[in-house]
Structures are given as structure tokens and as C-alpha cells.
């Protein structure tokens, strides 16, 4: 464990807690893409298959349970909660996320570390996580008015993966043979997808104006 990875995990934890808190307290999911939340639930479900078979550490298990629990409960809130579901903007949240799942699955069947179910699912979860934010970014551009919490959620989600890249660089230089191209490239693509959001997020923060993404 290094400071970059710990900071990355804490930032990731903060992102899901910000979202859960927003939905739970104001009982609204305005501006939140259900598609992205469903993709994230799938990412965690396929990445943490080893949660009950390989015990790594208490921290690792607890964090996995939190990420699984929060992502599935956010999906439940938006789909099932009688008040929250009313604020879900299904006419705007129209990104066909199946077009993301299938290519990631095919890519995982072709590019993986070992051709086993677990390794293919691991690669699939990495590729899917890289693109899972797309429905949310598209929704933000459509809905124009980005409320602070949703903006913070997306920012923290992007920042966590950027911190993980620093973690991989640190581990590359401190651990011999630490080379994992699949993870690195997927993580880099993921962070690059946030690049323009980061730009507009900092612009709005610097000029102290409401965050607006160009259409």
C-alpha cells in the first residue's frame, strides 16, 4: 500500500459516499445517470469475484463490500425508491450502455492475462470501468445545469483513477517486474475521458461560476 493508492481509494470512497448521501438526504437523483451506476455495479461485481475466496486484508474486504453495497444500493434507489425514482431523467439518460458492455466483453475475451473465467472477468471489469462514466458525462452535457454534488461526484471519480496511475508509477519503480499493461492502459484511457470534464470543472471553480459543459 502506498500513499497514492490510499489517497485513490479514499477519493473513490468519497465519490460513492457523496452520491449516496445526495440521493439519501435530498431524495433526488436529478442529473445522475442510472446507466453509469448500473455499469459500475457490474464493474464491481465482475472485479470482486474473489471477495469470498481470496482474503487479502481486512481493508481490502471492507472496501470491496462498501463499493459493492453502495453501487447496488444507488441502483436500487434510482430504480425502486418511490420518491427518488421520480427524479430520474430517463428521457435524457439514453446512452445505450449495452454498446459499452459487449465490446468490453469481446475485448476481454481477446486481451487478458490468462484465459480463465476470473482473469477474463477481471479484464472485462477494467475495460468497462474505463468507459462506465460516458453515460454520466453525456447526461451532464445534456442537462446543462450540473448541481454541485453531481459535479463533485464525477470529479472525485476521475481523481481516484488519476491517483491510481501515480500508484502504478510508484509501484513500477519500487517493485521489480511490476508491469501490468492491461490495467495501465485501461486506467489511462479512463482518466483521459475525464480530461475535458476536469478542464471545465477547474475553469468553473477558478472563475467561481456554475459548472457548464459545452453542448
Amino acid at each position: 500500500m502506498n500513499i497514492f493508492r490510499l489517497a485513490g481509494d479514499m477519493t473513490h470512497l468519497a465519490s460513492v459516499l457523496v452520491l449516496l448521501l445526495k440521493i439519501h438526504t435530498i431524495k433526488s437523483c436529478a442529473g445522475v445517470s442510472l446507466k453509469t451506476q448500473e455499469l459500475y455495479a457490474l464493474v464491481f461485481a465482475t472485479r470482486y469475484l474473489d471477495i469470498f475466496t481470496d482474503f487479502i486484508s481486512l481493508y481490502n474486504t471492507v472496501m470491496k463490500l462498501i463499493f459493492l453495497g453502495s453501487s447496488f444500493s444507488i441502483v436500487w434507489y434510482i430504480r425502486r425508491h418511490k420518491i427518488v425514482r421520480r427524479s430520474y431523467d430517463k428521457d435524457q439518460d439514453t446512452f445505450r450502455h449495452y454498446f459499452l458492455v459487449l465490446p468490453c466483453l469481446l475485448l476481454a475475451l481477446v486481451i487478458h492475462e490468462k484465459f480463465t473465467f476470473r482473469e477474463v472477468m477481471w479484464a472485462f471489469s477494467l475495460y468497462l470501468e474505463a468507459v462506465a462514466i460516458l453515460p454520466q458525462l453525456v447526461l451532464l452535457q445534456r442537462t446543462r445545469n450540473i448541481d454541485n454534488l453531481t459535479g463533485q461526484y464525477v470529479f472525485l471519480l476521475g481523481a481516484y483513477r488519476a491517483l491510481y496511475i501515480l500508484n502504478w508509477i510508484y509501484r513500477y519503480f519500487t517493485e521489480p517486474h511490476f508491469v501490468h499493461w492491461i490495467t495501465w492502459i485501461a486506467g489511462l484511457v479512463q482518466t483521459l475521458l475525464y480530461a475535458d470534464f476536469f478542464y471545465y470543472y477547474f475553469e468553473s471553480w477558478k472563475n467561481n461560476v456554475k459548472l457548464q459543459l459545452p453542448a
Binding site: R5, D9, H12, D50, D54, I56, S57, N60, M63, K64, F67, E113, K114, E119, W122, Y164, N167, E175, H177, F178, V179, H180, T183
Partner: peptide, 10 residues
């Protein structure tokens, strides 16, 4: 470089 070492990451 086994993937094992990456499995400790979230």
C-alpha cells in the same frame, strides 16, 4: 509478473 500482486488493488 503474476496478476496476483494486482489483486490486492481495488
Amino acid at each position: 509478473s503474476s496478476n496476483k500482486e494486482l489483486k490486492d488493488e481495488l
